[in-house]
Computed example of a mutant assay.
Amino acid sequence: MSVFLPRAAVAAVALSVLALAGCETPAGKVDILQSSSTSVVAGSTYAWAPVTSATQRSADPRIANDIINQRIQSAVDSALAAKGYRRVSSPSQATLLVSYYVGLEARSEIQSNNMGPPPVAACGFRGCVGGWGFYGAPMLDVETINYTQGTMIVDLVDRASGQLAWRATSNRRVDSSDADQAALNAVAADMVKTLPGGAQ
């Protein structure tokens, strides 16, 4: 049996779906991990942790380069400054050491779209004509969608103890437009929202 919805109902459903899609934050799904023994104090000083071969930020050549590195560091610096944290040049003078990691993963999903019920048949003196599909059943459009899932991690380590104090992990679909400075600034600001500090 086919179900026909009034156009107003279809429009309302479409608008609600668009509203939900618009609710996604710049950083997508953000998970926060906070140490129960090592706290992050608002207004602390920080420095970027030295990068060693054991702590490579990314092995993916699309993002393992100086341009992306500078953009991400600038985005994190701006986000931390907005929360009241102060960057110092020497790690030995900092309360916190900051580092980040980025990963990209190719994924795909199967999506099926219901193309809707058959159109209303036109009826006249000689019977009804219209409809499409077998026995008037709705048609399905099935496609494979390939996308890139991006993960970004920002760590704050207590320099004195060497213990991880706070970690934010962002997971979302990404494309080439996410590598520009404005997009990275928005992601970093979203990731540090729950960090103790000044303006939220």
Rank of each mutant, 00 (worst) to 15 (best):
L5Q: 11
L5H: 09
R7S: 12
A9F: 12
A9M: 11
A11Y: 04
A14N: 12
L18I: 05
A19C: 00
L20A: 05
L20T: 07
C23P: 01
E24Y: 07
T25P: 10
T25C: 06
G28L: 11
V30W: 10
D31E: 15
Q34D: 15
Q34P: 12
S35W: 01
S37V: 03
S37K: 13
V40F: 00
S44H: 08
Y46F: 03
A47C: 11
A49N: 10
P50M: 07
P50I: 03
S53R: 11
A54C: 03
A54S: 08
R57C: 01
S58Y: 00
D60N: 14
D66T: 08
I68P: 00
Q70D: 06
R71S: 05
R71M: 00
S74H: 06
A75L: 02
A75F: 07
D77V: 04
D77W: 05
S78H: 10
A79S: 06
L80S: 01
L80Q: 09
A81C: 08
A81N: 09
A82L: 07
Y85E: 01
R87T: 11
V88M: 08
S89M: 07
S89R: 02
S89Q: 10
P91D: 00
P91C: 09
A94C: 03
Y100A: 12
Y101N: 15
L104P: 14
L104A: 06
E105R: 15
A106F: 11
A106C: 15
S108Y: 08
I110P: 02
S112N: 03
N114T: 10
N114S: 14
P118T: 06
P118C: 09
P118K: 08
V120A: 13
A121P: 03
C123F: 04
F125C: 09
C128G: 01
C128I: 01
V129A: 05
A137T: 14
P138W: 06
M139S: 15
L140D: 14
D141F: 02
V142S: 03
E143V: 07
T144R: 07
T144H: 10
I145D: 06
N146I: 11
Y147W: 14
T148Y: 15
G150Y: 09
G150N: 12
G150W: 06
M152E: 11
M152Y: 12
M152G: 13
V154T: 14
V154M: 13
L156G: 10
L156Y: 00
V157P: 04
V157G: 08
A160M: 03
S161H: 06
G162C: 02
A165M: 00
W166R: 01
A168G: 06
S170C: 00
R173H: 13
S176Q: 14
S176N: 15
S176Y: 14
D178I: 06
A179D: 07
A186S: 10
V187I: 12
A189H: 04
T194F: 12
P196I: 02
Q200N: 14
